[in-house]
Amino acid sequence: MTVDAPPSWATTIPHEPGVAKPDPILVVDGVNRRFGGLLAVDVGHLEVQRGAITALIGPNGAGKTTLFNLLTGFDNPDSGSWRFAERDLSGVPAHRVAHHGMVRTFQLTKSLALLTVMENMKLGATRQRGERFWGALLRPLWRGQEKEIEERADALLERFKLSHVRDEFAGALSGGQRKLLEMARALMVQPELVMLDEPMAGVNPALKQSLLSHVKQLRTEGMTVLFVEHDMDVVYDISDWVVVLAQGRVIAEGPPAAIGANPKVIDAYLGTHFAEGGGEALGELGPDERLEVDQVGLGEPLTPGGAADA
């Protein structure tokens, strides 16, 4: 697998925090969230390009998940606003956010254990007549729609290779299968923007490859993907653009290759280990220290671009 060349817009715009994108689907302005004395999120300006895969990286506690929670209505900011697809979504409750075409997944997978895989999927469909109290009592009102939804769900299960567990309880699936199910279920909403919170966490390498191709497939189908991830292989492999968050602020933005070489990012997040091939921080070390750094590292040093070759 080779890494796709970055899209042309990513190379032509400046690689700096808050940079304007040619066709943004999500525009965040001055969003602040304070937990007691801690300023968890303090994003001045951030744009997410439509139809691209944007990675949100940063150290633990940088505010990535909090930002997700704010944007999807699961938490309320102290100040700030954001627009999604030209609509102001600030203050819109979580359940209405999905209707606007923005759907999220969770860091800890939320499969609905005592519902079957198929029921999990069908739950994702919006505007169901049978979900209204009085309508629910009269099956003829919703039987046709239910059938359509089931066909759509079956197609997605086929694509995510979950057809064989269609009628199992979701609680009986493996951790990886639950990740797949959660992503497939989110697609039942037919979103424009999919927000994935650590989609690859705790997933074995083979399944990771399959998840990666699913995420790329979303982009091919014209969806926008914003995802939080710690696995830099994944970030380098699939993202068109990377946003780095540290202590609640956007400290850097750019295509993956530029991010890997950015001294601020190396300092705050990647560590000198990732700087091989252009990082200043590593360059400042003497040859012996350089060796030490490599020994301390958790595996092969990553070079932007070649890491995910299998």
Binding site: F74, A94, T126
Partner: peptide, 18 residues
Amino acid sequence: RVVKAIREDEDAVRSLGK
């Protein structure tokens, strides 16, 4: 289905627009 899903995990159901 929605009601049973709420019993399992309310946040997941909210994220799906209910």
